[in-house]
């Protein structure tokens, strides 16, 4: 068996192990699913009247793409926290003393977190439909939108995996990811239209991959004002491609970095 197929075979064993936890501790899942509902409702009703994203599109419609992006990116915190917990409990030592693929624990963790994100996307989409969000382009486009969200979240998972192995403390991971992910998602077009940013901040927002992800999702769901050019930046002219470039870039850097960190990881 070569290294990749072993990483996948062993990774699947770890994925199943992580999924059993969802079954045994459903409270965690409920918590994961309630927060996106809360976000959709809060933003839709609190800011719904105050922000006008452009003619022909309601804020609720505009908002959902941003909420999707923010939630799946935040979901990566789970990856970091899960690995930190495994480190603290010493089970990483058990895994590291086994003749298994050194990538398996990471492959398994990031894969099982895709399942979390799929579930939260379903819940958010249903909540969105309730408050007036609609998929206005074809179903295939919409699926591509969900796929892009999951891909980007998967890449961010590998970043958090590295952090989780580097700083094996669940508390630190939660706070650290908040400090990084909060600005990343708020300094973007996720919640407010890009026109409302000026100067340097506008440039940052335009090249923030979360903006491109959000833009691509809105585009694929048909939630953009028709015919309007929101930005001349290349990143937002080709948001799906720009997002995919980030996904590839992040994975190329953080997969090897995380696997290396796993090999060095020493729990106690």
């Amino acid at each position: 068996m070569n290294a990749v197929s072993r990483a996948l075979t062993d990774g699947w064993v770890i994925t199943k192990r992580n999924l059993i936890k969802i079954k045994r501790v459903p409270e965690v899942l409920i918590f994961v699913l309630i927060s996106p509902i809360m976000f959709v409702l809060l933003f839709a009703f609190v800011f719904g009247g105050a922000i006008n994203p452009g003619d022909g599109v309601s804020y609720k419609e505009f908002l959902i793409g941003g909420i999707f992006a923010q939630t799946v990116v935040f979901g990566a915190t789970f990856t970091g926290a899960g690995l930190a917990e495994d480190m603290q409990k010493g089970i990483i030592d058990r895994f590291r003393s086994l003749p298994m693929s050194p990538a398996a624990v990471l492959v398994g963790r990031t894969t099982s977190d895709v399942v979390y994100n799929v579930l939260s996307l379903i819940i958010m989409a249903l909540t969105g439909l309730l408050v007036g969000w609609r998929i206005r382009d074809g179903a295939l486009d919409a699926l591509a939108g969900f796929g892009l969200l999951l891909l980007f979240a998967y890449a961010i998972s590998w970043v958090m995996a590295w952090v989780g192995l580097l700083v094996p403390s669940v508390e630190v991971i939660n706070n650290a990811s908040f400090i990084v992910i909060m600005p990343l998602t708020f300094v973007s077009n996720a919640f407010v239209p890009i026109q409302s940013f000026d100067g340097v901040l506008r440039t940052i927002v335009e090249w923030n991959p979360v903006s491109a992800l959000t833009q691509a999702a809105r585009d694929l769901f048909g939630n953009l004002p028709p015919g309007e050019t929101v930005s001349d930046a290349w990143s937002l002219q080709h948001p799906a491609l720009y997002t995919l470039l980030w996904v590839v870039g992040i994975l190329l850097v953080f997969v090897p970095l995380s696997v290396r960190q796993y090999r060095l990881a020493s729990s106690k």
Partner: peptide
Amino acid sequence: GQYAAVDEHLTGFENLEMVGRLY
């Protein structure tokens, strides 16, 4: 190890089966 490295959410059977598959 001195810290029993078992996954507390898995059953005893699942823990051992997982280790077997990883071997």
